[in-house]
Design a protein around this nucleic acid. Structure first.
Lengths: 238, 238
DNA sequence: TGCACAGATTGACAATTATCAAGCCAAAAT
DNA sequence: ATTTTGGCTTGATAATTGTCAATCTGTGCA
């Protein structure tokens, strides 16, 4: 096991703001933070491997982490995790093997809290327990939405709705940048990079202009009437 | 709101055995059971509609319930719920709108526990809270596995692995029956009924014999070597 | 400056999957 | 017993998506 440094004060306050930690007792929070370590990772480092047993709850402090899965020499991107949020909470709780692998996409700073401490404090602090339940329910709902997206929409529709979500996640302005490579976006959306290229072209008639990773929505209403976004699929808070 | 009958003793003991209720205090369990009602439903009744606000935790006592979702005049089957298990736990916990609709497939007996009671007892009984967390983590992991199945496998591979899972869920014998209509299976597996028909034919060379809903696996090893089942996708306990 | 490399794009083609229109079959209704 | 109904199957065809090979493009590095 690599040894990292203790979690600096500055990050602690960030972590404290997470839904999952915000309501818990000070003393238990300190407890967890004492057990936690922080490590810096270069890009393209595999942090966890699916099938391994969960030993740490991970928190992305800086950078981006990709969750992905493999089967039979195929690989698919399952989610992107951005600061500040946790990942693989479910495996931690269940003491079960990871279902997904994780790798850094850029230089990243990750906090690691030993799973056993999470489970112990879960039993001691009711507010923490409640927060974890809320978080898990949220994660569950996010994956269900993702499944609906995959099964109910064509690739063109998935891309259109992804663009609208990403636009909203950023400022909401008509111009924004894709937050990672197109090949990963393709994999996340369940298509090949070649098809993603064609899908971008297919959205031109609806007012989508692509220049590298720079997106411009020239006709918001037109794109929305094509994409037909639904809060029950695309609203990642509800 | 329809009024049902109180939860009979015989069903209470069944419900008590569910992971989610098995470890909780007697008194709190009784509490929940007093608030619960049971209703019988004919086949093809829509129990809940996506978008509605969650007001009851549902438990299937007898029969089969299909969870499905719709978007833009399309519909897809998300899961089948069989006795004895709960559904829409996450929406209940979050007081959030349902992401899926539910309908009975056959004559079914459903227990309904008011969501507010579930949330109240959740705050009072630590064992119940822990069980709910475990259950949610499980549900989350089930959906992640489903996503991997969808994104990493072709329709033929999905069908092959479904057959192996279903075989195992039943006795494990080389002969078994599909537990619901093929058209629903098709939708659940993310394909059209026509394609499912062809997929069954495509599995003949691997020792799958189909007669109506009766399946016979004549060459277990052959089918498995084609399907390449993985515990990280197909094992619905781990 | 220019080379090397990885990602992105394009075109030609193949595989997969969906759609449409019959027809088939078995269970339910009359 | 006959009719009706709904689900299943089949064939023909179309749409979508994937594969392969080649080219382009920008970035980083020698």
């Amino acid at each position: 096991m690599h040894v990292g440094e203790p979690l600096a004060e500055s990050f602690q306050s960030e972590v404290r703001k997470l839904d999952i930690f915000s309501a818990m007792e000070e003393s238990y929070f300190d407890d967890l933070m004492r057990a936690a370590y922080v490590q810096n990772f270069p890009p393209h480092v595999e942090l966890i491997t699916e099938g391994d047993i969960s030993d740490f709850l991970h928190i992305v402090l800086v950078g981006t982490v990709e969750l992905f899965s493999t089967w039979n020499n195929r690989e698919t991107s399952m989610a992107m995790v951005r600061p500040v949020s946790t990942f693989i909470l479910a495996a931690t709780i269940r003491e079960a093997p990871y279902l997904m692998s994780a790798r850094t996409l850029e230089k990243s700073r990750i906090a690691l809290i030993p799973s056993q401490d999470v489970r112990r404090v879960f039993g001691q602090d009711a507010a923490f327990a409640r927060a974890i339940v809320g978080e898990l329910a949220n994660c569950y709902r996010a994956v269900v939405k993702n499944t609906k997206d995959l099964k109910l929409r064509s690739s063109l529709e998935r891309l259109a709705n992804y663009l609208l979500r990403e636009q909203r996640r950023q400022a909401g302005a008509p111009q924004f940048d894709l937050p990672f490579e197109k090949r990963r976006l393709a994999s996340f959306l369940g298509m090949t990079p070649e098809n993603l290229s064609r899908a971008f072209k297919g959205l031109q008639p609806y007012g989508v202009v692509v220049d590298g990773s720079r997106m411009t929505i020239t006709d918001q209403a037109d794109l929305e009437s094509f994409a037909k976004p639904s809060p029950l699929i695309d609203d990642h808070r509800a």
